[in-house]
Design a protein around this nucleic acid. Structure first.
Length: 638
DNA sequence: TCTGGCGTTGTATAA
DNA sequence: ATTATACAACGCCAG
């Protein structure tokens, strides 16, 4: 140890944008660094390959700005240095130029991020840089939970709790640092790699030219966090703002209300409440790591312990919600990448929903496709129309539409609201694949967490975690139960704001006088330009569809295929359902005479599509390393 | 190995 | 108004 150079440490912030309760940051400071650079790198994967609405970008920028300010408060010379280049190309140059000895970060949980981090660790080893990581994203280390659950993913809350008990007490929160070392010099005497932005899944959101990667240190040259303008985005529409300061204030306000905290029962909170919402709204903060889940856990638990009789307990309680979050993370850790899809997922039921995902060809896998491509098959034009009407909140069912519009505008809806719209899209109405719904939530939710999103969609669609498909949410009755007067509908579906409460959940039943008095007409499908004073007709007969869906679910359960079944991959599942007389999936066939060959063609269509690599190149795709597809090769001589 | 009880968050109807 | 029950019936978990 004696002859070693004093530590020059990069602390790499990613999804842990906070100073309070950060085990990884503590590990960095325990090195007693000579200099410490708090950095954030702009990963092109998230900029271009993860579809995300402007609201979530705003929330991320809020978190970065707040964190940078908090760092500067501890050391006026320091801040969050935001570097506009992918970590895979940036780090080797940075290690050398800045004389780095240690790289420290909190471990990630997503497939892409884990792969990226393995790659970066190899770069560090090559450069003689020591890497230190800690977990801090979950209550317990998800890999340890899986190990204690017999090496299996946690598919019930009981399994999670048992595994957690075996591991031991959830670590107590670590106080925020009271001081931070100076940052070192930040020379940029190296070439800047601009990533390949194609395809840019967020192009539709950009109003102006994307300048994300124009320079490493940003337009002002001082590594300041980006602005929406720099990313080419318009202003956000969400009222929910990010940042550790706000998150800690929200948490302290919640726990100051001892009765709310100690007696919280999730199923008793209203999905129709707004201003204020019935739940904590801290899920986006946990997603970006501006709030530590363990700090939340222990602050809540202390209130429960001090409350005595009458306190709620898991799974309904506040801490119970955090346990469910850990359950999904440990399910993902146990199953791996297929957790986010049906294909190749041994724990998810196969149901022949409409609008199924297309598969990505795997040249190196003779066993058939293993991943979904992000595109889907329009097997039924009617289902596609239902899906679009669901997504944009013009189904003609006011409570569904209110929730979907709230989601799109604000990036957040109550958990039970998510239940209703998810059930309606899948097993309780449209019979559309849960992966389609998960795509929309991924795009619009501020708190989008891949593991929790996929897990909850599996739950609601009764493909994993939950199986009582005969319990079906009604788009009419469920809202009424919580909000008889339809306040949520009046707020988010203003066309109906003056409609008599008797008809607010079923406006198509309103007599002409009631509609005239409310200055609204019930007409059309809601697609195209919105017309003043017009609200669409219901897109389906819910009672009829509920019966159809339930019968179809029953058949699918009897057939009992899982996502990793060979028949799912090769398309031979179809015959099983035909033999069982399943009618709903007939929409999944191209109308044809009895030989069935056209249907087979439709099924094989995705295998015939030309190979599309992420770089858009074809011939040299095989020679690429695992991370190469995320950025351009260094431009020779430029 | 079998079995009854129960599962964070359903609905419609009846008492 | 609250509470019970049928609906048609999954699958984990503990005994």
């Amino acid at each position: 140890m004696g002859g070693k150079k004093p530590p020059r440490v990069i602390y790499w912030f990613r999804t842990d944008l906070r100073l309070h309760d950060s085990p990884a940051l503590k590990a960095a400071l325990d090195l007693q660094p000579e200099v410490l650079w708090p950095i954030f790198t702009w990963d092109p994967h998230y900029v271009y390959k993860v579809k995300g609405g402007v609201n979530r970008w705003q929330y991320l920028l809020d978190c970065q700005n707040d964190l940078s300010g908090s760092i500067t408060k501890l050391n006026p010379k320091s801040k969050l240095f935001v570097l506009r280049e992918g970590p895979q190309t940036l780090f080797p140059k940075l290690f050398k130029a800045w004389g780095v000895t240690h790289l420290v970060f909190e471990r990630d949980t997503d497939t892409y991020a884990k792969e990226r981090d393995r790659f970066v660790m190899q770069l560090a080893i090559k450069a003689g840089v020591e890497v230190i990581t800690r977990y801090g994203r979950t209550l317990w280390d998800s890999d340890e939970v899986v190990a204690k659950n017999g090496g299996k993913p946690t598919m019930t809350i009981m399994q999670l709790q048992h595994a957690g008990q075996k591991i031991g007490q959830i670590p107590k929160p670590i106080p925020a640092p009271v001081s931070l070392p100076d940052p070192g010099e930040t020379p940029l005497n190296f070439e800047h790699n601009e990533p390949d932005s194609r395809p840019d899944l967020n192009a539709e959101y950009r109003e102006n030219k994307d300048k994300t990667y124009s320079t490493i240190s940003g337009p002002t040259g001082d590594f300041a966090p980006e602005t929406l303008e720099e990313l080419g985005f318009p202003s956000a529409t969400t009222p929910h703002r990010g940042g550790e300061t706000i998150a800690l204030k929200m948490l302290s306000d919640i726990i100051a209300n001892k009765e709310y905290t100690a007696t919280f029962k999730k199923p008793n909170t209203s999905p129709a409440a707004f201003e204020p919402q019935a739940t904590t709204l801290l899920s986006p903060a946990m997603h970006f790591g501006s709030l530590s889940v363990r700090l939340f856990y222990w602050k809540s638990q202390e209130v429960v312990d001090g409350y005595g009789k009458g306190a709620s307990s898991p799974p309904e309680s506040l801490t119970g919600q955090l346990l469910f979050r850990d359950m999904y993370f440990a399910a993902q850790a146990g199953i791996g990448a297929p957790f986010l899809q049906t294909l190749n997922n041994s724990h998810v039921r196969f149901i022949p929903w409409h609008l199924p995902s297309k598969y990505t060809e795997d040249a190196d896998n003779s066993d058939g496709p293993t991943t979904i491509s992000g595109e889907y098959q329009v097997d039924s034009p009617v289902a596609e129309k239902w899906f679009q009407r669901w997504k944009y909140g013009v189904t003609g069912f006011p409570f569904v539409d209110a929730l979907m519009r709230q989601l799109r505008q604000e990036g957040w809806i109550h958990h039970l609201g998510r239940h209703l719209v998810a059930c309606f899209l899948t097993r309780g109405g449209c019979y559309i694949h849960w992966e389609r719904g998960a795509d929309v939530f991924e795009e619009w939710l501020l708190d989008h967490e891949p593991a929790c999103n996929a897990g909850n969609w599996q739950w609601l669609s009764c493909t994993a975690f939950f199986s009582q498909f005969y319990r079906c949410y009604s788009p009419i009755a469920f809202g009424k139960k919580w909000d008889k007067s339809g306040a949520l509908i009046r707020r988010y579906v203003p066309e109906l704001k003056d409609l008599d409460e008797k008809y607010i959940y079923e406006p198509w039943k309103a007599p002409p006088q009631a509609l005239a008095a409310a200055h609204v007409k019930i007409a059309g499908d809601g697609m195209g330009d919105a017309k003043e004073g017009v609200y669409p007709e219901p897109m389906l007969d819910f009672n009829e569809r509920r019966t159809v869906c339930m019968n179809a679910m029953k058949v699918a359960y009897q057939i009992g295929l899982r996502g990793d079944d060979k028949k799912v991959k090769d398309g031979s599942w179809k015959k099983l359902f035909e033999d069982a007389g399943e009618k709903e999936m007939e929409g999944a066939e191209i109308p044809s005479d009895d030989n069935g060959s056209e249907a087979d063609d439709a099924e094989n269509e995705n295998h015939k599509r030309p190979r599309k690599t992420r770089t858009g190149r074809k011939s040299d795709a095989v020679k690429e390393g695992p991370m190469d597809r995320h950025f351009k090769k260094v431009k020779a001589g430029s």
